[in-house]
Design a protein around this nucleic acid. Structure first.
Lengths: 152, 152
DNA sequence: CATTCTACATTCGCACTACGAACTAACCGA
DNA sequence: TCGGTTAGTTCGTAGTGCGAATGTAGAATG
């Protein structure tokens, strides 16, 4: 049987899985507010740092090449990203944000950050810092791709 | 611009988003190993506690009714869950694990726990406990549905 | 009791997600 | 130049998730 929600003690596995569920819901809600899908939102966030080739993007987002083509197609059709020819490799393309894409990405990113941050509102500052440190170490040690980063 | 991965300081937002990405990847990998989708795996985990009606399931998994019908259909076609008539309400059904579904759920759950737990292998026991406590508070305070629970 | 209102679930059509296999074009090394 | 590799796309398939519309059954009201 499962423990009750009111049970104060929650294992680390459950805490991770359920917090992930929470983050996913926030992502879905935030992206919907901007007329994009969570995947498109994630693509925009990755591209905020710099343009990437399809291969690099596939590695970061953990998507097969064929999956990525469609995602870029659809996001491109919205006018948010653009395929640019790679200057040195004529086979390759570089996916970059359009002006509008950058604008949407900025707003989506800011909004998402605000919503995610609100999840930890109940924790006092020192606890939030501790949580960020511990969770950050988990992320770093598992080499999670930089699908999201702190603003400068 | 974005901070570098090697940058030790990671904000709580980034840590949450990227750890969620990590958990999602583990869930996808684990479910694939059992020939099911992550959504089907999640359904099995929820039903491990007890059978639920479609309405309850929709609330817990945050899915529209129409989305759930298909998920249950497909999982049922695999022989893992079953629709049972509700004893008191002839409109309603109760979704329950079949014997095979219970067996798969047990193994999937155990395997997933092992994989998720491994994510925090780099932390020492006291840090893991602290992380579980803080993240557990975030989960509890945001009333995340019990889509996953600790084993008894 | 009949009528109405609401709740439970399904069906349908749509767009998106994700994959592997097969393919084209271009790079690169021998 | 030839053969192998790499970058991306195309195509077919299965699954996801939603809203609108539907049918049936319980609940509430007269």
């Amino acid at each position: 049987m499962a423990r009750n929600v009111s049970d104060g003690e929650m294992g680390i596995v459950t805490a991770l899985v359920r917090s992930s569920f929470l983050v996913d819901a926030v992502y879905a809600e935030a992206s919907r507010a901007y007329g994009i899908t969570p995947q498109q939102g994630q693509l925009l966030c990755v591209l905020m740092a710099q343009p990437f080739g399809m291969g690099e993007l596939g590695g970061m987002l953990r998507l097969a090449k064929s999956s990525l083509t469609g995602l870029v197609d659809r996001t491109s059709k919205l006018g948010l990203v653009r395929r640019e020819p790679d200057p040195v490799d004529r086979r390759a393309v570089r996916i970059a944000l359009t002006d509008e894409g950058l604008a949407v990405a900025d707003r989506f990113y800011t909004d998402t950050c605000r919503r995610i941050e609100a999840l930890a509102d109940g924790l006092k500052a020192s606890d939030r810092a501790k949580l960020a440190e511990l969770l950050g170490r988990v992320v770093t040690e598992n080499q999670v791709p930089v699908v999201f980063a702190d603003a400068e």
